[in-house]
Design a protein around this nucleic acid. Structure first.
Lengths: 210, 210
DNA sequence: ACTATTTTGTTGCTTTTGCAACAGAAAAAC
DNA sequence: GTTTTTCTGTTGCAAAAGCAACAAAATAGT
């Protein structure tokens, strides 16, 4: 991410300065938070990877969002309208700042340093989130599995400034993320290889078209 | 929308106080802005309806987002990675505040009232945007046309606090919004009627299940 | 190092979705 | 009030995607 401030410093400086903010550690596969109950919880992922996943009534699992370091998440950002399970699950060991807030303007009665900084930096963090969500929507609205795959590969290629890049998660998870059937996706990947659109070696992908 | 401040007052009070902010009027079907060039433009829709639409290389049109009053939009929120056309088109007569800004912290050299207020209110406006984008993603990740339709109807029902509600746009646009083929969607709507899931009269829908 | 679990790669079959095309209804334009 | 345009509703057919199932490979667990 291209933030104008140093997130590590921000976190280090303030993680213990406010009693409304907790730093917690989660092991792989642990549930970091659920979006079902409204607790006015707002989180910043410091280290690790986590996914926001939905389990619907048919047992389908969808990766709604994928978080890496400095990502913000929490049910504040979510108006849950369905009764599906919505969980944030740690994909690896995660350190998370958890912040319960009362009002949306992010002010603290004690007007502590953490909250001052938070209100200064939060618009940027949230703006970043909007950008990534917009990209997600752009991907999901693609009509075919092929377009979704190529769209996603383009994104990773642009992000890494290289035609070769590594998929940030397993093919199983990628299918969940693009909201397509895994076997159908594998079939499409095979075709993309056969038609020389891509080269693939494990999780390493190379784009072969201009 | 449930904002903690009065948007009309906010707009009225400040629309002419800063020379970096312009108020413009657009007729139906006019292009309000394009996302292709980076101009650091940020807009607030005051009145009317507008859509963010993508035209891909095959001529497919997708409604990426739908804006109503007090919605914020603009290419600030967007990292364009594809070379598809991305336009905001007025669906009806629209009044728009257009704001060109230099830095992300929304400060103005003159430190004018508009910018003070903007930096106070913006997090809330953007947070609202995140919420609506999350709902959009939730819809788009549904596996079938049926689930998308029912998901969307649930949303409108919840929003209107009623099992009966009016679709905010045409069925043609709804198909574009849910990113499905129109005829396939019509077929599914017919089935939903036949199976007594919904009652439909023009754009009025009534949910018949608990 | 061995075992258990998860992931990958593949395929045949079924179901869903998309495409193309058209007629009638509704809405907008004149 | 008439014409033109857009929207709705429908269908047959083609294409794409989903489902189920399985073996091989890779990874994680002990």
């Amino acid at each position: 991410m291209n933030l104008s401030f140093n997130v590590e410093e921000f976190i280090k400086e303030f993680e213990n300065s406010c009693n409304k903010v907790q730093k917690k550690t989660f092991e792989k596969n642990e549930v970091i938070t659920s979006y079902i109950q409204k607790r006015n919880q707002f989180c910043i992922l410091i280290t690790g990877n986590a996914d926001l996943v939905r389990y619907d009534l048919n047992g389908n699992r969808t990766i709604i969002d994928h978080f890496t370091d400095t990502d913000v998440f929490g049910e504040v950002f979510y108006n849950v309208t369905t009764n599906n399970e919505l969980l944030v699950e740690a994909r690896s060991k995660c350190e998370v700042l958890i912040y319960s807030y009362q009002n949306i303007h992010y002010k603290c009665k004690q007007n502590c340093k953490f909250h001052q900084r938070l209100s200064e930096y939060l618009p940027e963090l949230i703006l970043d989130k909007v950008t990534s969500l917009n990209m997600r929507v752009e991907l999901l609205t693609k009509r075919s599995t092929r377009d979704k795959l190529l769209g996603y590969f383009n994104l990773l290629s642009t992000r890494n400034l290289s035609k070769t890049f590594k998929l940030p998660f397993s093919l199983t998870d990628l299918a969940d993320y693009l909201s397509v059937d895994r076997s159908a996706m594998m079939r499409e990947l095979k075709l993309l290889k056969e038609e020389n659109f891509i080269k693939k070696n494990g999780k390493m992908i190379t784009l072969l078209y201009k």
